[in-house]
Each structure stands twice: as structure tokens, then as C-alpha cells.
Design a binder for these strands. Sequence first.
RNA 1: GGAGAGUUGGCCGAGUUGGCUGAAGGCGCUCGCCUGCUAAGCGAGUAUACGGGCAUAAACCUGUAUCGAGGGUUCGAAUCCCUCACUCUCCGCCA
Length: 423
Amino acid sequence: MLDLKFVRANPEEVKEGLARRGADVSLLDPFLKLDETRREKLHAVEQLKNRRNVVSEEIGRLKKSGQEAEDKVLEMRQVSQRIKEMDDELKDLEEQLQATLLTIPNIPNETVPYGKDSNDNVEVRRWGRPADFGFAPKAHWDIGESLDIFDFERGGKVTGARFTFYKGLGARLERSVFNFFLDLHTREHGYVEVFPPFMVNSSSMVGTGQLPKFAEDMFKVEGTDYYLIPTAEVPVTNLYSNEILDGGKLTISHCAYSACFRAEAGAAGRDTRGLIRQHQFNKVEMVKFTRPEDSYEELEKLTLNAERALQLLELPYRTVCLCTGDMGFSSAKTYDIEVWLPSYNDYKEISSCSNFEDFQARRANIRFKDGKAKPRFVHTLNGSGLAVGRTVAAILENFQQEDGSVKVPGVLVPYMGTEYIRN
RNA sequence: GGAGAGUUGGCCGAGUUGGCUGAAGGCGCUCGCCUGCUAAGCGAGUAUACGGGCAUAAACCUGUAUCGAGGGUUCGAAUCCCUCACUCUCCGCCA
């Protein structure tokens, strides 16, 4: 959520920022007009309330001393009625304003390259070299089938499309990967692990920006106000909602494993095979709460923390900076990390690392304070560290051997208890 | 799922015959005094949001709101009524 005062004071700057990311700016002027109406009305009703407070006090005094105050009571009865009407009008205005404000995306940071879509993203780093197999590499779904470690069909039977069973060493590989990620981030990168609820209420979803605009992308639990989380970002960022943190404790860094659930209404027909796009997948997420002045430095560190996981797994990747037109709703700057997938003959997103600046903090009301200074909003960041299913797919494809087995990356051998996955 | 108790400021904790209580008292914290150092002591201060003064920022002044959330009664509600959420205890059930 943008700062209303900032929008009010810098309408042109806001319009320009929104236009850069290709957002609709036509609603901004009516919005500001509405805001002005609200302030006028607020001022008027507050004056009435002041009068009511003063006179009510007087009535109390009069009655105490046994005097008559009936005329004043009658007058205040009318004033109160008027206040009630005006409060209702005001509430309506505020709801309209808030509703609009919640649908306005974040403004891109000035360092974000301008562009229309993913074609304009800018590669910033590349690591490792795709292997030269010397034989025709198979896609991970074929590898998984021949090794009998996935069961897509029964996933479909038991639940539906885009749900999968992992079996045997496949299940163990999934578990090994997220344990490795958690160990890496907690032991070497200084993150404090949390294990969050996998359902959150709607207000948490508003806090991180999934609601109100993207309800159709999520699973809602019928008869409740709860949603299945699309990412651990939601519960972990909202961990400190409506709190004022001690400035001395920042930066706070958390990592969390969670299952993630995405309905992804618009994704039908894309990535239909294999583990790449499932309605339920596992992910380890990193989340940071920083002082405003530290957030961009922390974004670089967080992105490198995610990259480190791929380096240790010996998986080739590249890192791209998303252009203004390709960024998510809440983000001010995003790096995507893309892992090499032989079956796609391309790099495929495996992590997304973003700085939201104070956009989420304002929605979720997460502030910090130094001593007697006024509370300020923190900056929030998060990034996948990493998506587990896609990591498993990348391991299978990049480490497959000519005989059909898959070599286990060295760092995972202690977790797997074997050096090869084979029939 | 059933029964009961509770939810007040950073924390603890008063306040339920409605009225000068944004809220006593204590702790904590900040500043000052005092002090060889520490401790103790003394004094002052110590919520947030949204408006207005202000054309802009800070400071300051001022108004309004906030005693779990929302609604109601009333000239006036932390105090009365209703609904909901959460916490705790007991019972049932379960992993």
C-alpha cells in the first residue's frame, strides 16, 4: 500500500512510477478528489464532536449541582444524530479510499530497468555451465517414472490434476532438499527458522498483498475466513503485523519451510507435465525485516543466499533483474534466479527475491522504533531459498546418467544415505 | 463439541451505583540533579493514528478517535446491553 500522504503530496511522481510498470493511472485523480472530500467532512464532524464533548461535560456539571439542563440535552440529541449521519458518510468514503489504495501496486525502485514484459528482464549473473551429456537427456517426469519415484497418475486419482505422490528415494530426495536448505540458511546465513501455519486469515493475505486483487489464485477453506498459504511469505511476514519492533533488533531474518498451495487460475495449459507447476509444492522461504536504509543491501545478500544453495548443489543458473513491467504487485525490485533445465533447454525460475520496501509493512502495520523516535515502517523482503519441487526436477535432469540412474549431488549424500538413485 | 473465567498503556495492575480517567499506582525506559565508581535517592518526562494551525519539512500548538473487535442504549460509556474473535481452566474427543 502506498502512503496516502505521499500520494497526496506527489501525485505526478506516483503516476509516473505506476505508468513505468504499466499500471492503470486513470483512477488516481478521482481518488485524490475523494480524499479531499473526506478531509473536509472529517474536519466538520470533528468540530461537532468537540462541541458535543464540551456541552456534555457542562450538562454533567449542571446536573451535579441540581440545575436544569433539558434544553442542552435536547440540542445535543440532535447534534449526536447529525454526527452519526456524518460518521456513516465518512466511513463510506474511507472504505472507498481504502479499497482503491489496496489495489494500487507498488512503485518500482529507480534502479529497476524499464520494460514491458519478461523479454526486457536484464541478466545480472550467470553461474555454472549446462552439462554436455553425450546422450539424449530425459525430462524429469520420464526419469521419475523409470526410477519409480513419482506417481503423477495416482496423484490425479486421489486428488486431481497437478497433485503428485513422491515415492521411495523420490520422497526422500524432496525431504533431503528442504532439510539441506534449512540447514544452510540457519547455520551459515544466520536465519532463524520458523515453522508457520499453512493456513492464514484474510487479513494476513491483505497484509502481504495477495488480497484483495488475487483471490482467484488461492484456495479458500470453505465456511471459514482461512486460506491455504501460497507461500510461507504470508504467515512469516505477518508474524509481526500490528507490532512495533525494537529498532535495535533489526535486521530480523527468518527462514521457513512450508507446503505452498496455488490455484493459479490463469496458468491452465502451462507446464502441464512434471513437477514444475503443481497446486501443492514445497518451498523454503527467506524473509527479512529491515530498516529502510538497509533494505537494498539486504536484498543483494538475500539473493546471494539463494544462489549459494544452487552453487552447493552444482546446478547451473542465472540471475535476472525483473523489469518494471514484469514485477509482482507488491514488489519494488525483484531478482529472479533461474535454474538450467535440460528438458526446457532453458533456464526456469526457481527463486524470486524481492524488496517490498514499506508496501507490505504499511498494509500489515509492521513498524519499528529507536528509543524515543517516532515509529517508522520497516522494509520487508523475501525470497525463495528455494522452491523444492523445481530443485528436485533440476537435480534429476542435470545429474542423470546414461544408464538411467541419477547421481546425488555431494551435499545431499549425507541426507540421502546413497550416492545414486537407481532402480 | 459442552461449561466457566478473562482480554485496560512497553510490562504489571486499579478502575463495573455511566460524567473533569488517555486512563490511579508500581515497574521499566529517557533526561536532569546528586554521587570518587556502582548502588540507592530526588525531580521531570514517557502511547498511537487521523485532521487543523501550515504553502512545504521538523518542532510546537490544537481537535478527534482509541481501555480485544464491531454494533446498540445515552446529552455523555473502559464502565450498561448485543454479536464476534482470542486467551486460560475443567469435561468430552482426538494426533
